[in-house]
Design a binder for these strands. Sequence first.
RNA 1: GGUCCGUUCGUCUAGCCAGGUCAGGACGCCAGGUUUUCAUCCUGGUAACACGGGUUCAAAUCCCGUACGGACUACCA
Length: 509
Amino acid sequence: MSEHDIRVRFAPSPTGPLHIGGVRTALYNYLFARKNGGKFILRIEDTDQTRFVPGAEDYIIRAFDWCGIEFDEGVTKGGDYGPYKQSERKAMYKEYADRLMVSGHAYYAFDTAEELTELRKKFEAKKETFTYNAAERKRLKNSLALTEAETQKLLEANTPFVIRFKMPEDQTVRMDDLIRGTIEVQANVLDDKVLFKSDGMPTYHLANVVDDHLMKISHVIRGEEWLPSLPLHVLLYDAFGWETPQFAHLPLLLKPDGKGKLSKRDGDRLGFPVFPLQWTDPKTGETTRGYREDGYFPEAFINMLALLGWNPGDEREIFSLDEMSAAFSIERVGKSGSRFNPEKAKWFNHQYMLKKSNKELAGQFLPFIKKEGVIADIDYIEKVVGLVKERAHFVHELWDQADFFFKAPSEFDPKAVKKRWKQVSYDQMTELKTLLSGLDNFSSGNAESVVKKWIEEKEYSMGAVLNAFRLLIVGALKGPHLFDIIALIGQEETLRRIEIGLYELGRKE
RNA sequence: GGUCCGUUCGUCUAGCCAGGUCAGGACGCCAGGUUUUCAUCCUGGUAACACGGGUUCAAAUCCCGUACGGACUACCA
């Protein structure tokens, strides 16, 4: 393996279901790896034991599985750079923290969480912000302020400690971001972040830098919320004497209305999912809807997500994962946050509905038909789907568009009856029944030409006859081309429905 | 409050880096056409460079400022 191999990672924390913003971040990493012939790695960042949520890791894996996003290495895949779960790498982090101690880039701090909280409160009362930095560290309980003997004594007494990064003074940190360009920050304004916690676990900052280096990550593509800690990370690479990977910080997903980033509450409030899969909170038992359960096709979901912040530079909008991979480039990712638009999400699903084969759709439609207590042949369902798929956004909407293919109307839309069932209708339909019963060729085309010829010869109103006919067959003024319908349900059923309709609607006085 | 990031139709965005087009496309919405139903589809329309300076013959594009928005500011990631 050469030094220049492209390796990217997605590193979620198993603290709950994966937000669609996270899915998008993973997607961009995946596309970047595919485009550049690189590897895509899934690493679980579970260094916070207090926030562990059972089932979350499994959820994350199932979610990507559904999306069709595959990893080359990671918790489920294995690989040469494992383990891929940080809790299983625990032992090594202390070693790296110690290296920083030795090189003078880090120090022990014995301040308790309570003491620091107290300090922050005091500062706040003075309308100031407490920062653990060069100005303050001398007055606090740490190995920089204490004598060596005092420090040693505390250590020997097993006093809980953390290891903090010693932020350099008077240094300008220069960073390059693939999306935002060059960013400069004065190290003075940064604080001495905790690298190693008193529970023996590293913080995100240490773990992510160590792991990214050890796993030979070439590009760190992550959410914008990490931008403020980028200087720390860059300084950490420097302190270790490691080459920094390239960075790209992705813009946020914003809520459809109002201000701020997209949250679970927006989904509940506006009626759309914020998670790929349904999630049931193990503690509260509360269930949150997912895109899959709402009837979205994974391809549509991914396609919609990809275009939220990225565009190919031409006017294409419908992409398969392969097409997206080929077209993707990090330079074409926008800088500003994207407002999520539920309407367009539906449109995407409709596009995929149109694209999908009738066979595949029929298979997905089958359970809904069974639920209605109807038994139907799969070939028949396929033909039905072909006629109605363009009128639905989701598979679950198909039944409403197609129920009349499976059963005679049980009721007739009163408004339609009022509008289209006239005095003459009864006699005309009776005549039509006779006409149709004599047909040998009941194909859509033949039935249509015979019926229309008859209407013309009798000088009936085309609209009146056809709409009354539709009413008897469908029960409402909706549906595909009428003659396609009767050809599909067949001559016998067509005649039966006319008969039933005649009986139900009767002769209008 | 501090630090950093951002700002083109209602929304997603192209155009910006290498200044010069009636600022283009898509979703939505509106109108017309097709479908003697409804939906699809087709055609057309609606609608934007946050504001103020500067540089220039010329600024959406380059520079500065302002406003607004966002993220971060934990022994969370």
